[in-house]
Each structure stands twice: as structure tokens, then as C-alpha cells.
Simulated scan of single mutants.
Amino acid sequence: MRIFGRNKEQDILNLFRRGDASAMDELYAEYASYLTAICVRYLSDDDDVKDVLQEAFIKIFTTIDAFDYRGSGSLKAWMGRIVVNESLLFLRQRKRSPIDRMEADPPDLPDDDPDTDDLTSEEMTRLIRQLPDGYRAVLNLYIVEGKSHKEIAQLLGIKPDSSASQLHRAKDMLARIIKNYKSHRQ
């Protein structure tokens, strides 16, 4: 069954409120790809992604009754935050603190960013997944989620200066990864 209403989020929420058995299937069908893409930004192992997504969907399904709909996009954003939080929780529970996984200072690179115009989003995702967990977490929280270094520090249990430093290192490492990938691709 496909939902044909004008606002899919509200239609899905109405299915949950009515106790409709198809509510979970509809939510999953509509948002699984989006939520998987978020999770992949934080975790490099596909089995870990599956585990975290399963936990995130359980949390979504068990707490959706308490969700306060605030207009179009709010359900999607709420679920995205759950996936980010579950991904970060997973990294912490593995006792692999992002700081513990940081490598030594990479060699200095020019401050110019590598050209990524000819890379697909799938290629970029694969390249970003090569970063160590901590670098990847800081990069995503800062660039994609728009968090400040103070917020990142609170989420990861590090100092704001460490967040800024790790972001710089993540960008440098990613630049090297991209340059290496492009040189071998040709």
C-alpha cells in the first residue's frame, strides 16, 4: 500500500496513531535509504551500519508516539537525529573513543581543497568511510550536521580545541585519500 496524501510524514504518523499494521512498513519504505545514508557517514563497516540502523528503527518505532510533529520535514529530521545519536553511541560503546582512533599528525598539505566535482556521491561516501572513526565523526558532525566545535566536544567527550584540530586533520587526510583515488582511477 502506498500513501497518496499530500504530506507523507503526517500520513505515516496517522497510521501509527490509528495502530495500523502497515505503519512501520510505510515508514521504513519511505526513509530507510535516507537513514542508511546518514549511518554510513559515521560507520565504515556495513555490518555495524545494519546493527545501528536496527537499533535506531527500534527506538523510532517505540518512541514515535511521543514525537511532536512540527511541520513538513520534522519527522525526517527527528529520525535523522536518532540515527546520528545511535551511531555515536555505538562508537562510544565499542570503547573506541574517536580520540583514541586518531592517527598522528598527517603531513602538511596545501590549504586548497581537492577538486571533487567529478566524483559521484557514492564515490565520496566510499572515500569518507576510509577515514578513522573519530575523524569521520568530527567531519560529519561539523560539516553535515552543522554542529559547533563546542557541541561536538560535548557529544564526543573531547575538548572544543580537539574537535577543531581533528576536523583539520580529517580534511587533510580526506584530501590525500581523494588525490590518491583520482590518481589511480585514471
Rank of each mutant, 00 (worst) to 15 (best):
A77E: 08
Q54W: 01
I38H: 15
N85G: 04
S97Y: 09
I128S: 11
D65S: 09
D111C: 07
M1W: 03
S72Y: 07
Y34E: 04
I64P: 05
S148V: 04
L127S: 08
N180P: 04
L15Q: 08
G5W: 01
K59T: 05
K147H: 11
F4L: 05
K59N: 06
G5V: 01
E151D: 12
Y42S: 01
T120C: 14
K150W: 05
F16K: 04
S87F: 05
D113H: 11
A175C: 10
V40M: 14
K182N: 12
D45I: 00
E103A: 06
A29T: 08
E9D: 03
M102P: 02
R2C: 00
P160K: 07
K8W: 03
L35M: 12
I3T: 04
K95C: 08
L75P: 07
K147N: 14
I177N: 10
D65E: 10
R176D: 12
A32P: 01
G146M: 09
I64V: 13
Y34R: 11
G80P: 08
Y28I: 02
T116W: 00
P98D: 01
Q54R: 08
A29F: 03
I58P: 00
C39H: 03
L167C: 08
P110V: 08
Q130S: 11
F90P: 04
Q154C: 02
Q130T: 07
V84L: 09
E86N: 12
V49L: 14
V49W: 14
N140A: 13
A66N: 11
Y28E: 01
K50C: 02
D100C: 07
A175N: 14
R81H: 14
D115G: 05
R81M: 12
D113V: 10
D45M: 03
Y69M: 04
A175K: 15
D133G: 10
